[in-house]
Write a protein that binds this DNA or RNA. Structure first.
Lengths: 123, 123
DNA sequence: GAGTACTCGCAAATGATTTGCGTATTTTTT
DNA sequence: AAAAAATACGCAAATCATTTGCGAGTACTC
């Protein structure tokens, strides 16, 4: 099943991937169609095996579910995404839950700015 | 200029709006085309008069810039967005800046879950 | 008042993602 | 193991928010 190829690519990647990136990688091993990639990704998301998050560029990024909580620092110059595990949002979530009764199940957090590399080159 | 109508709708709204919502509102006063709305919105964003943020639904939401920092609790049932001003991310930003040298200029934070209203009805 | 610069409307283009449909492949049933 | 039922997949067309080209209207300048 082609699903295994797709899932493996995601599993072996250290950062989140777009459908097209996954398609490109999988295509090197087997014949596959982009729509199959999308269908499979949606399937994996439904089964909670991977997560999908839409970034400010309006593109969906997929990554393995149940890994340590991660967020991304996205450079507006080079567009690279640097993962960070700093996230104290859980505290905020608890506070919100208490004060508003809203039952929060997930959150997305995205930082934008310029990465050290681009800062250097900007001189 | 039609820009004023658009800007006013945003200024008078207590929460963020989509291009279509703005279009619908402005249309009640004057004749206007959707593409004009989009063009104007991009213009206002460039001038830092309003901000645009892309949510998980892949739709852009616009709101007045330079207001107090706000984030949204989005109900996955009724899809309503409830603003909250709880946000201690500034602390996290400072920490990241210090530890990684990444120059953060903005961030987006979005909470998902079920709002109190829907929780009640879900019974 | 001619020349130049915006502002807009309209229709077509864009790009990521989805979907319909027919075929192939796998799984289940007998 | 063959028939039947279910699932996976390729291909092309559709979708939907947003953008863009172009031509016409309007304002601003000299």
């Amino acid at each position: 099943m082609k699903k295994d190829y797709i899932f493996n690519v995601i599993k072996n990647s250290s950062n989140s991937l777009t459908a097209e990136e996954i398609y490109n990688t999988v295509s090197q091993s087997i014949n596959i169609n982009l729509s199959t990639v999308y269908r499979t990704l949606n399937n994996l998301v439904e089964k909670d095996l991977i997560t999908k998050s839409v970034r400010q560029d309006k593109i969906s990024y997929y990554e393995l579910a149940n890994t340590e909580h991660k967020h991304y620092l996205i450079c507006d110059k080079c567009n690279q995404a640097y993962p960070t595990d700093m996230c104290d949002i859980e505290k905020i979530e608890r506070k919100i839950k208490k004060e508003t009764g809203f039952n929060i199940t997930s959150h997305t957090l995205e930082f934008h700015g310029i990465c050290p590399e681009c800062l250097k080159n900007a001189k």
